[in-house]
Structures are given as C-alpha cells and as structure tokens.
C-alpha cells in the first residue's frame, strides 16, 4: 500500500520537501491520524508544529480517523489563510 503525502507552506519548509511517497505500517488499519503519527517519527521537526490541518484526496478533513486506502493523497498544511 502506497500513499502520496503532500506538504504545503510552513510545513513544506519544515519538512524540506513538497511531497513523499509513504507506505503505512501494516499492523493496523491506517487512518490520516496514524499516518501523521508515523511520519512524525521520520520528520521529528513536525512535532514542534502546533496547528496541522489536513486534506484527504483534496477534501478538507473533518475526521482524523478517516481510513486511508492505497493510492490516496493526503496533504498536511498549517491553517488556511485564503481570501
């Protein structure tokens, strides 16, 4: 199972890249929340970020427990400042 993870704005700078391909660990059903917890191990600097928002397949996330499927795209970013 492979998912595409994108980082925007401050999080892109903190991580040092705009996207990664990621294989969630298979011992539990992955959700957006567990994926973020796992990539925080790889990118420890994300632990300092207080406000992380997310989108799953280009839809703003309302529930961090949304399950993640093969080929999904998750984006992590700081709170939006549009308009």
């Amino acid at each position: 199972m492979m998912i595409n993870i994108l980082f925007f704005a401050r999080l892109r700078e903190v991580v040092g890249r705009g996207s990664i391909q990621y294989q969630p660990s298979l011992d539990k059903l992955p959700t957006v929340k567990t994926v973020l917890e796992e990539i925080k191990i790889q990118f420890k600097q994300l632990n300092d970020e207080k406000n992380i928002s997310a989108a799953l397949n280009q839809e703003l996330l309302s529930d961090w427990n949304m399950p993640v499927k093969d080929g999904d795209e998750i984006a992590f970013f700081p709170p939006i400042t549009g308009g």
């Binding site: 925007f8 704005a9 401050r10 406000n51 989108a55 700081p78 939006i80 400042t81 549009g82 308009g83």
Partner: peptide
Amino acid sequence: IIDYLKTDAPFWKKEFDGEVSRWVNVN
C-alpha cells in the same frame, strides 16, 4: 463566500519585508 474562502480555500500567504519573512497566521 468570502468568509468561507478565508478558512476553506487552500491558500497560504507569506510576507517578505527586506530580509525578514513570515507566514501569515490564521485569524
């Protein structure tokens, strides 16, 4: 529409002032 754009449209603003730059915080 403008109220929703502020919080739901995925844009992020960064201000540059000479040597200094900062991401705009959510209001």
